[in-house]
Write a protein that binds this DNA or RNA. Structure first.
Lengths: 404, 404
DNA sequence: TAATAGTTCGTTCGCTGACCGAACTAACTA
DNA sequence: TAGTTAGTTCGGTCAGCGAACGAACTATTA
């Protein structure tokens, strides 16, 4: 079989598929116009896609001048994606179809034993989710797992993941594929979050985004030129180690991170204790601040100033279109508003700041996005260079509602 | 004429050309092996390239078993590139051929009037450089101009360029193309520097790099996934506004930048005056520090600690393979060594730090790199998606020596 | 020294597969 | 019925391939 000819055919296949994905029910004539390919070619390609079960006729146009056209759509059940959000405390597994409908979602506390026990758990939950959604398990094509750490593509291990025991000591990706019986990918959860927001959240249409997840710890996901930034050792986004907040030259800062120590929950609690003389949880601090308590307000104010400086650091280095705030602390309106107010007094040009829209489902959406585009790439684009992610437009996707 | 077929042909053209560029004198059979295309196809493509004047026979192999092979190389004079490093005080114009030989280089103080006068100056210097290098001016294909500011691709203006008067008020790119008579591109000079170092300097083979230029001011260039990071408004790398060093909430920091005020020359001079009680220039401070004067050493030490924090900020956010230090202050060994020594005490995992190798020619090399890959893209790849930059390997390039 | 075996280079030939333009039929509205 | 759009059929172009083969060389052997 030829080689370059093949490549060129897959070019067309992808172009056609992209047109269908982006414009929901669409006729062959319209596809021809959009892609620039001729009508005959489109008919041929469509026949192939229909034979292989990827698309099907779903209706006809009417009401306009001229012959009515047959419209086609993706067959949602042609393949399924498993999106997994693996946290230190909870595992969430969702099964989605090709038009991004969430067919089922199951959540469970993360197996405390860590390591291979968690792999087993994910495999079991995947089976349950498939059954619950009425999905033929053999149609599951790929699993994307968001993990709180730095997955190494070469070894399959996950570094910097203190919340999940043992993931740095064996090939997690391989073990997952083994347990599931199909392809599996690992990705940092904050990276997935930024991807999710850029697809269906507040980052739609933006090529340069930052996502800051602030809660117990702090981390960031970065999208530059439409691509995820993973860094040399997959350690990009270790925002906790920004060299300000606490004194970065204190030895303790090498362990916990100068920025993280001050901006994340531990820092807030500590500062509150210093001011008020007694302990309070983070939610309690927010509550007290809302009730007008000055100490709590001061703590929030300080946190906002520090977070603003973190945003300033990101903006100075990478100049994103928008910075999205997420995590249990970062997404709270009280904090976001304070950050917005204070940012102009420590950074010279305007930076768009917004709370995460997808909340704690951002990673799940991002996992679906990766799974979907990876499917498109592997099924229709083997051999062609990695291309921009092509996903259905937000308005055609029922995922957002399903997950809210 | 067909469409996708054309794309596929250009795929082959580019693959073939890439093989030739990367492996200097090469036979058709070897190209076939490398590209995976068949021998006949290669012969055909080579015939076309030779007809169009891009490559030519340059020898034959011998000594090995089997028939001798004819080897081909790029015709260096098929097109020329103009690389311009436009600084606030000096303009440097170099003319290079397709194998990256520098045929001539001219330098002049930047026209003080700024604006269109500088455009005229560049055009004149280009003419002079071409004449001096014996280059037919009609063979000049593209000019790449490094500017100390943020060129806007849409309007062609250059923002944030206080050192060149008036570049923010007219379409500089268009004016340049008009004055030169061929294609012209603008790019931030630090971005070019990082590109240059990644091609022929200390960043060879690395996909994630940061370049910090420290002198009168401070700026950074970032390469992520092998691509330049320009940011949303082409304002990535405005490192001076990192929110530490001076108090970021001081109003003055909004103008001059909290980090820049302390780390760049102004900060060093000020700190020295505070300690020693009299003024000294930056070179003088270095000299005194080398002579053992404690105040000067303290100033250097402080600068190194601050710069280390800047590097830490970049590493925390983007995790580059290496951070390259350049600029009149940043490239001094005394400082680089101090930074290397202090970095581990404010950042937890190791970061490779090195002085710029190409020095003040980094931008010029980077400009050539962009010009070269842009030529490849436009001549052989119109319509194909932007691809990775493909440049001759460092050992095949005489540019490094020529510019030292 | 000459023949021959083995290797690699490069071409010729015939074929396939992707795609197009033009001409056509089909189906609809005004 | 005229005009418009959808989709098919037909014939042709072009990139590229595989196989076979001649060309050019080295190594080996008689």
């Amino acid at each position: 079989m030829t080689q370059a000819v093949r490549i060129s055919r897959q070019f067309s296949l992808r172009a056609v598929l992209e047109a269908i994905v982006q414009n929901a029910p669409i006729s062959r004539a319209s596809i021809a116009k959009q892609t620039g390919l001729s009508k005959q070619t489109i008919s041929e390609v469509m026949r192939q896609l229909e034979d292989e079960g990827w698309v099907s006729e779903t209706g006809r146009t009417s009401g306009h001048i001229g012959r009515t056209a047959v419209t086609y759509e993706i067959v949602p059940s042609a393949a399924y994606i498993v999106a997994v959000d693996l946290g230190g405390t909870k595992v969430r597994v969702a099964v989605c179809d090709l038009v991004c409908r969430v067919l089922s979602e199951v959540t469970e506390p993360t197996h405390a034993e860590g390591g291979r026990a968690v792999i087993e758990q994910i495999a079991r939950l995947t089976g349950e989710a498939a059954a619950q959604g009425g999905v033929d398990p053999t149609r599951l094509r790929i699993a994307v797992v968001g993990v709180p750490g730095a997955p190494q593509p070469d070894t399959g291990r996950v570094l910097l993941a203190p919340n999940i025991v043992g993931f740095d000591s064996f090939d997690v990706a391989a073990a997952l594929e083994q347990a599931l019986g199909f392809e599996a990918m690992l990705e940092n959860d904050v990276n997935l979050a930024v991807l999710g927001e850029s697809w269906l959240g507040v980052g739609q249409g933006l090529d340069n985004l930052a996502y800051i997840a602030l809660g117990t710890g702090v981390g960031s996901g970065l999208m530059v030129n439409g691509q995820l930034v993973r860094g040399a050792a997959n350690a990009a986004g270790e925002l906790g180690f920004l060299p300000f907040g606490a004194d970065p030259f204190e030895p303790e800062s090498l362990r916990a991170g100068a920025f993280e120590r001050q901006v994340a929950s531990y820092g807030m609690v500590t500062r509150y204790r210093a001011l008020a003389g007694f302990d309070a949880t983070v939610p309690a601090i927010f509550e007290r601040a809302n009730a007008g308590e000055p100490h709590a307000r001061a703590v929030l104010e300080d946190t906002a100033r520090l977070l603003a400086r973190g945003i300033g650091a990101i903006a100075a280095i990478t100049n994103p279109d928008k910075v999205i705030l997420g995590g249990s602390i970062g997404s709270r309106t009280e904090l976001v508003e304070r950050v917005k107010a204070v940012l102009p007094s420590c950074f010279p040009y305007p930076v768009a700041v917004e709370a995460s829209e997808l909340g704690n489902h951002a990673a799940l959406v991002g996992a679906t996005a990766i799974g979907l585009s990876h499917l498109h790439n592997t099924v229709f684009g083997a051999g062609t260079p990695e291309s921009r992610i092509s996903l259905p437009p937000a308005n055609a996707v029922s995922m957002r509602e399903a997950l809210q």
